[in-house]
């Protein structure tokens, strides 16, 4: 698109995009591609040399793995849906000025720079049954012991994990959408309004479809991260079922050497499921 904008032959690098791309492609091919290939090879490796399907057979026959997969899908799905929904709401809120808008925007940006490890620890100390929130409620006389407070971390619905991802990703989604709204300007919606559409109809029928591609892209990134991250469920997750990445890391660091190919198989399963689902989301858009 941009390339067709200029007809000059004098633009540097024109006709040689591969030269500019080669260094980055090489690095990604070796580090990322090599990592995937070796991970895959590792999942088929047998101790003492040779190849086998044992690790895959073992992993796929375990009920625990399927339960973990289900949990991770729930975590990633719920986190993505909530982040996108709330992020959209927040973006719509923040594009109009109101008292405190500047502060909210600043916090959005700060939040984006916070490492996941820090956020997860903060959520743990905020939401656990003896955490900050529980103590506030206890101080107000709402509960007597930690057990009276609803379990929000290490709980069966992974509320703590999802809360962390939503907390971290709402600003991410929100800022992407804000940027898109800025570049769209007010024109599409005001055009619809002049044609007689109400404010909500204008938003739903005009603005939302225009934002959809950005929303799907942001959602895919959120989904992939929430599906595959280890740092967060390891702090906030329950013992069983554990999120799939936690299970993979457990096998990777197990003193039992036979568990390593299984760890690799689990890691590949994570990559495969994530890639397939995201692909499906993009195809459905078209």
């Amino acid at each position: 698109m941009a390339g067709s904008r200029t007809s000059a032959t004098e633009v540097l690098g024109r006709g040689h995009p591969w030269l500019s791309l080669a260094p980055a492609l090489c690095v990604i091919a070796v580090l990322f591609g090599g990592g995937l290939v070796l991970g895959l090879a590792g999942s088929f490796a047998e101790r003492g040399g040779g190849w086998s399907l044992d690790a895959w057979a073992q992993v796929l026959s375990e009920g625990r793995v399927w339960r973990s997969l289900g949990l991770s899908l729930w975590i990633a799905g719920a986190s993505t849906a909530l982040s996108c929904g709330i992020g959209l709401g927040a973006a719509l809120l923040l594009r109009r000025s109101f008292p405190g808008q500047g502060l909210a925007r600043l916090l959005f940006q700060i939040n984006l720079t916070i490492p996941h490890a820090v956020g997860a620890l903060g959520i743990l100390w905020l939401l656990s049954q003896s955490g900050f929130l529980a103590r506030l409620v206890a101080g107000a006389g709402g509960i007597d012991t930690p057990a009276d407070f609803p379990p929000l971390t290490q709980d069966r619905f992974a509320i703590g994990i999802i809360a962390h991802y939503v907390w971290k990703e709402v600003p991410f989604v929100g800022l992407i959408l804000l940027a898109n709204m800025q570049s769209l300007g007010d024109d599409p919606e005001s055009a619809a309004r002049t044609l007689g559409a109400g404010p909500f109809a204008a938003m739903r029928l005009v603005l939302l479809p225009l934002l959809m591609p950005a929303l799907v892209r942001a959602g895919a990134i959120v989904f992939a991260f929430a599906f595959g991250a280890w740092e967060v469920p390891v702090l906030l997750g329950q013992s069983s079922p554990a999120a799939l990445p936690v299970l993979a890391w457990q096998r990777f660091t197990s003193p039992d050497l036979a568990a390593r190919p299984e760890a690799m198989a689990l890691a590949m399963l994570i990559a495969l499921v994530s890639a397939l689902l995201i692909r499906a989301a993009f195809t459905a858009r078209r």
Binding site: Q129, S130, T145, P146, A147, Q154, D155, R156, V234, G237, Q238, S239, S240, A242
Partner: peptide, 19 residues
Amino acid sequence: GRTYPTSITQLQQMFANRE
């Protein structure tokens, strides 16, 4: 018993917090 602490640190914190 529906779930268990995932680490000894979690048990340590639960003991300290009177859980």
